[in-house]
């Protein structure tokens, strides 16, 4: 059983009278622990695919089985529970809450999940150390550099120890050096077993991924796997 199984996925947006076929006939299977780079021109449906994988959006047709379970038929609360426990999101624009400190932002998924404060504090302290943020725990996002912000966001995305990490152009707002640093961080997490699915325009990162999914016009044009040595 694959971790992610998409079959015959269609996603159509209606803009007035016009129809935008954001995803068409998507069949995709991803095993646990894979490192997948989703690439393609702007507007090709990469973000829509990621949102769908993260249960933020639902397909108009097709089935999505996550860890063997058909998640498209789940109710909203169950989907929220899946997002909470199994999925981590990293966004291009970080999406940190500006009034909360770095530590509070990292703790947020646990707070929402109702995890007791003692457990939270211990895990946040460890995460701050792991991501080199221990000196920044009480800083607010506007007191952090771009790279630090994205590290906070990644710490937050992984604090619930999700099975799948979804990152939509995580280095898009960062300079080259910081981007590399963030990329390495994500790859480290993948090395330790988390499935990593990254939307990226960076060919270098695409090269490093063991699998590249190339999208065009809402469809998967090529699905490149490394040839076994």
């Amino acid at each position: 059983m694959a971790q992610v199984e998409l079959a015959g996925i269609e996603r159509i947006f209606h803009l007035g009278d016009a129809e935008v076929h954001a995803l068409r006939a998507i069949d995709l299977t991803i095993e646990a622990g894979e490192y997948v780079a989703v690439m393609g021109p702007s507007g090709s449906g990469k973000s829509t695919l990621l949102n769908l994988l993260g249960l933020l959006d639902l397909p108009d047709q097709g089935t999505y089985r996550l860890e063997g379970r058909d998640v498209t038929s789940l109710g909203p609360d169950q989907q929220a529970a899946v997002r909470s426990g199994r999925i981590g999101f990293v966004f291009q624009s970080f999406h940190l809450i500006s009034r909360l400190s770095a530590a509070e932002n990292i703790a947020l998924p646990m707070t929402l999940a109702g995890i007791p404060p003692e457990t939270r504090d211990a895990r946040v302290r460890q995460a701050l150390i792991d991501f080199g943020l221990d000196a920044r725990a009480d800083h607010r996002p506007d007191q952090l550099s771009g790279g630090q912000r994205q590290r906070v966001a990644i710490a937050r995305a992984t604090i619930m120890q999700p099975a799948i990490l979804l990152a939509d152009e995580p280095t898009g707002n960062l300079d080259r050096a910081t981007g590399h640093e963030v990329t390495r961080l994500l790859e480290d997490l993948n090395t330790r077993g988390t499935t990593l699915i990254v939307v990226t325009h960076d060919p270098a990162m695409g090269e490093r991924a063991r699998r590249r999914v190339l999208m065009e016009d809402g469809a998967i044009r090529r699905d490149e796997r490394p040839t076994p040595p």
């Binding site: 993260g54 933020l56 909203p76 609360d77 929220a80 529970a81 997002r83 909470s84 426990g85 999925i87 999101f89 999406h95 809450i97 947020l108 998924p109 929402l112 999940a113 937050r156 619930m160």
Partner: peptide
């Protein structure tokens, strides 16, 4: 609005 979207992405239910 965007904060609410984030909370949902982080697993918050509608009730929360």
């Amino acid at each position: 609005t965007s904060e609410i979207g984030l909370l949902k992405a982080l697993g918050a239910s509608a009730a929360i």
